[in-house]
Simulated assay, not measured.
Amino acid sequence: MAFFSSFLLFTALSTVSMAKGEPDFYDPARVTQLSWRPRAFLYKGFLSHEECDHLIKLAKGKLVKSMVADNDSGKSVMSTVRTSSGMFLEKHQDEIVARVEQRIAAWTFLPEENGESIQILHYENGQKYDAHFDYFHDKRNQALGGHRVATVLMYLSDVKKGGETVFPNAEGKLSQHKDETWSDCARTGYAVKPNKGDALLFFSLRIDATTDPSSLHASCPVIEGEKWSATKWIHVRNFDKPLRKSTSGECSDDNELCPRWAAIGECQKNPKYMVGSEDSVGFCRKSCGVCDSSSSS
């Protein structure tokens, strides 16, 4: 049913776009299959340069140190394996963000509600994200919409050197030709260069829904220039209404950066994540001061 709904979405959006004189809203001719293990595809010119610049503008001044999910507890923690900075946009934050989200759904044939909010990332000289999986090892995060089945990584800027996305376990890593313009990190696997406007789609789960070890990937260190990117993680279930409940009635923070985020106004700027809604519990309720006195911890 979800597949059929996404197909209808794709058909409707394509029709609307052509009526507006925008036949390239979703253009399969721009998509290249890169690998089957993992399943990875590159869309040239997925975003216009104006859209890239707009997403960067939304993020500037709101970036914080990037975190990783702890394999045991599932909580977001700081780690030297990831040295970028980033922030999450709100879903349908404005017309451009909504259009990008619709385009992702049309391309992937995966429902919008299964996706997380877009995360904008910034990598300065030397910053990177070591090899990791986008699927989860802990049950805590798996409860939030299930495993991440697919990732759409959108490149918002060109990088003079470095910053490639590399798949160390990909089947085609030995056959890909690389000249002197590639970094040493990129030579460790099948790699994709960050080109402004391009988007990389890869799947973390196999067709049979088992986790795919060949989806291991990394963001190579930036050697020259800077790198901006936008990531959309898509889950196997609805992420807008996750099966997440407050544990034991306690009101607490689920991220160690909650006090800092609250201090810079994120409770008001990003209330769905920080405070929560009728459908989901917020991650920083304690720092945002929305706990009942009887439930605070």
Rank of each mutant, 00 (worst) to 15 (best):
A98V: 03
E112G: 03
A29W: 00
H177W: 12
H235V: 02
C185Q: 10
F136V: 00
C185Y: 14
T80P: 07
C291R: 07
C52K: 05
A230R: 02
T231M: 13
R244L: 14
L58T: 08
R260K: 14
E266G: 02
E116V: 03
V281A: 10
R82E: 12
C258H: 03
Q142A: 01
N114V: 00
G282D: 05
L34Y: 02
G86L: 02
L121D: 05
T188L: 12
S280R: 14
D27W: 00
Q93I: 01
L174V: 03
G282L: 02
N114D: 13
P23V: 07
A98S: 15
D138H: 08
F3L: 15
N71K: 14
S157E: 11
V68F: 04
S277K: 01
S79A: 13
C220S: 09
A131V: 07
H92A: 11
I118Q: 04
V97L: 08
K173S: 06
I223H: 04
A209W: 01
E266M: 15
G265E: 03
G61E: 07
N114S: 14
R103W: 12
Y190C: 02
V281F: 04
E180N: 07
V16N: 05
W36F: 03
A105L: 03
D24G: 02
D254T: 04
E164F: 09
L9F: 02
K44R: 15
